[in-house]
C-alpha cells in the first residue's frame, strides 16, 4: 500500500474526529506547575498559533503532546485515538511531527542524510540492514524535501557546517518527512533574517490543506500570516482563544503582551 492510500484510510477511519484534543492536561516539574488543566481542540487541517511570554509553558505543551514528557494528568487524543500513554515513537508513527525550539540535528551527517533518517523513522525500513539503492524511494522523498526547504545547494554539506537559518530549515524538512497529519512547530522563525522568514511563511502556506499544525511564534506578524486561529498562554494556562483579529484587539492580551512578552 502506498503512502497516500494509507493516509486516506487512516483519515477515513477517523474522518470526523478532531486532529488534536487535549482535556485537562497538566504537567508538574516537582513543585513547579508548568501546565495546568489545558483544554485544546484543533480540527483536521486547522492552523493554530500559540502565543505567550517566556516560560508560559508552550514548549512543555509540545513535549506533552509528542510524549517527550509524560503529562502528569489529562488525556490527549490524536484523530480520535487516545495517545496519552503512548511512547513518543508511537505518536510519531501515527502522523504527528514536531520541530525543536533548539535544533536537534545529527551534526556528523549531511543534510540529505538527516532528512533520510527522518524518512526512515516513519517507514517500515527502520530495521533494514540494506543500504539504500540508487533508486531508493525514501532517498528520493528526502531529496524532494531538501528542495522544498531550499537547501539543494547544501544537500551533501555536513550539518555542523550549516548556518543557523539553514539548520532551522532542515528541522522543518525533517518534520515534513513521511506523511505527516499534524505538525508542531516550535518557534521556527526565531533568529531568522527577514528574507528567511518570508521563505518560511511561503513553505508553511504551501503545505497541503489537510496538513494542520500548531506553531509557536512570538512574532505576531508571522503568526497572523500562517495561522487562522490563536491560543494565548500565560503561566501554564490558556488565557484566550479565538480568531487572530479578536485576539489582537483584546485589551487584556495587549496589556500582557506589551507588559511581559518580548514579541
Amino acid at each position: 500500500m502506498n503512502a497516500p492510500a494509507r493516509i486516506s484510510r487512516r483519515l477515513g477511519a477517523s474522518g470526523t474526529a478532531n486532529a488534536l484534543e487535549l482535556r485537562g492536561v497538566s504537567k508538574l516539574f516537582g513543585a513547579l506547575v508548568a501546565l495546568e488543566d489545558i483544554d485544546i481542540t484543533v480540527r483536521p487541517g486547522e492552523r493554530r498559533a500559540v502565543l505567550g511570554s517566556n516560560g508560559a509553558g508552550k514548549t512543555t505543551l509540545f513535549n506533552c503532546i509528542t510524549g517527550d514528557f509524560r503529562a502528569s494528568a489529562g488525556s490527549i487524543r490524536f484523530f480520535g485515538e487516545d495517545i496519552s500513554t503512548f511512547p513518543p515513537h508511537e505518536r510519531i508513527r501515527r502522523g504527528l511531527r514536531r520541530t525543536y525550539q533548539i535544533s536537534l540535528l545529527f551534526a556528523g551527517l549531511s543534510v540529505l542524510d538527516n532528512i533520510y533518517l527522518a524518512c526512515v523513522g516513519v517507514s517500515r525500513r527502520r530495521f533494514s540492514f540494506l543500504r539504500p539503492r540508487r533508486d531508493d524511494s525514501l532517498m528520493a522523498a528526502a531529496g524532494e524535501l531538501v528542495e522544498m526547504v531550499h537547501l539543494d545547494a547544501d544537500r551533501d554539506t555536513l550539518v555542523s557546517n550549516l548556518s543557523y537559518g539553514q539548520q532551522r530549515q532542515l528541522e522543518i524538512a525533517m518534520a515534513l518527512s513521511g506523511a505527516p497529519r499534524f505538525i508542531l512547530f516550535d518557534e521556527p522563525a526565531a533568529g531568522l533574517s527577514p528574507s528567511e522568514r518570508g521563505d518560511l511563511v511561503e513553505i508553511l502556506n504551501g503545505l497541503p490543506a489537510h496538513m494542520g499544525y500548531i506553531i509557536i511564534e512570538h512574532d505576531m506578524d508571522v503568526a497572523l500570516r500562517v495561522a487562522e486561529s490563536v491560543t494565548m498562554m500565560h503561566n501554564g494556562r490558556i488565557f484566550r482563544e479565538g480568531k487572530p483579529a479578536e485576539i489582537e484587539q483584546d485589551p487584556e492580551v495587549q496589556a500582557l503582551y506589551l507588559g511581559g512578552g518580548d514579541g
Binding site: 517527550d68 525543536y100 523513522g121 530495521f127 518527512s177 513521511g178
Partner: peptide, 20 residues
C-alpha cells in the same frame, strides 16, 4: 538504516524517538 539509526540513538535518543 539500521546502523545509522543505532548511531543516531547513541547520539541523541530523544531526537530519534521524535523521528519515529
Amino acid at each position: 538504516p539500521f546502523g545509522l539509526a543505532l548511531q543516531g540513538i547513541r547520539d541523541n535518543q530523544r531526537r530519534m524517538s521524535a523521528l519515529g
